[in-house]
Write a protein that binds this DNA or RNA. Structure first.
Length: 309
DNA sequence: TTGATTTGACCACA
DNA sequence: TGTGGTCAAATCAA
């Protein structure tokens, strides 16, 4: 038990250190911009560093949470602890011995993240891109189980997986088991990534949104920091939409809302509605930018997470 | 040619 | 030792 507690402390320290790294990178970015030195190259590099930090933090935050830790078996806890205490990282593989490699495979194999089971009558697009990696005949079941992983597993380290199997009693329906949370994003170009506000008077923020087929735009994780004057509740906010490759004069205002949860991250949502012709324009279905004019709150906004519609 | 799927093999766990 | 989850080479499709 002691080793688990020490690993949790290590995890917190790790996240703390990564947050410091992010902060320093942002300061560096601001300095580079201020002096206008090799801005393209430098900004590209800083953007990559920031992306790396964000992905790492996202993986760490969603992968091993305290409440999840309390639910895993002693063997899994031991396995996680050994990973944490030996600088384990996704994507790096110690090839010193086959046993070590197999041990890492073992750690990846047994999922410790949250599981959600759904029953559906048809296999519809769930908004994520999946890659099938296996199919298995299951004992006492006439229907095979299909295994899918997120397409961005290797690109972005997204560990989300799902299993799909026909229900034996009702073969017209499917049982879908989701494991893990999506940490994948479709990243905009560096020029579209907003810089963190280093001052408190800047009350507008830029977010990049990805569309799905329902014309809903999903907030993409960007780290920013801004302080407001009131405690946030569910409030209407003004959202100015800007579309790449479209005349800025055509940008439109839409209302939306942001929603703080009790102790979790703050989410924001926007629906453009099917009547908006731009929502159906294939040239601007991805990476639309929103400038959120927020007249609210006294909360330090740290991160947004994707909003599940 | 490239990306997705299929499928047999491998592995850990119970 | 049987089962389920994953890997990776072979195959398929656009």
């Amino acid at each position: 038990m002691e080793i688990i507690n020490s690993s949790v402390v290590d995890m917190r320290r790790l996240i703390e250190e990564l947050n410091c790294g992010k902060k320093f990178t942002n300061e560096l970015r601001a300095l580079i911009k201020k002096h206008n030195i090799n801005i393209m190259l430098a900004d590209d590099l800083v953007g990559k560093i920031m992306t790396s930090f964000s992905k790492t933090l996202s993986i760490l935050s969603s992968g091993v949470e305290l409440h999840q830790f309390s639910q895993v078996s002693p063997r899994e806890k031991s396995s996680i602890s050994s990973c944490l205490s030996s600088n384990y990282s996704i994507g790096s593989c110690n090839t010193s011995s086959l046993k070590d490699v197999n041990q890492e495979r073992c750690n990846k194999r047994r999922k410790i993240s949250a599981t959600t089971i759904k029953e559906v009558s048809t296999l519809v697009d769930d908004g994520h891109v999946w890659r099938k990696y296996g199919q298995k005949k299951i004992l006492n079941s006439p229907h095979p189980r299909n295994y899918y992983r997120c397409t961005y597993k290797f690109d972005q380290g997204c560990e989300a997986t799902k299993q799909v199997q026909k229900i034996q009693e009702n073969p017209s329906r499917f049982s879908i088991t989701y494991q893990g949370h999506h940490t994948c994003k479709i990243y905009p170009s560096i020029s579209q990534i907003p810089f963190e506000s280093s001052t408190n008077e800047d009350s507008s923020m830029l977010l990049s949104f990805n569309s799905n087929t329902n014309n809903y735009y999903q907030p993409y994780v960007h780290s920013f920091h801004s302080t407001y004057k009131q405690e946030p509740t569910k409030e209407e906010i003004s959202l100015n939409c800007f579309y790449p490759n479209v005349d800025q004069s055509q940008s439109s205002s839409r209302s939306g809302y942001f929603q703080p949860s009790d102790d979790g991250p703050i989410t924001a949502a926007l629906s453009l509605g099917s009547s908006d012709h731009r929502a159906n324009d294939s040239s601007c279905t991805t990476n639309c930018s929103l400038e959120m004019e927020m007249m609210l709150g006294s909360v330090d906004f740290v991160d947004l997470i994707p909003f599940d519609f």
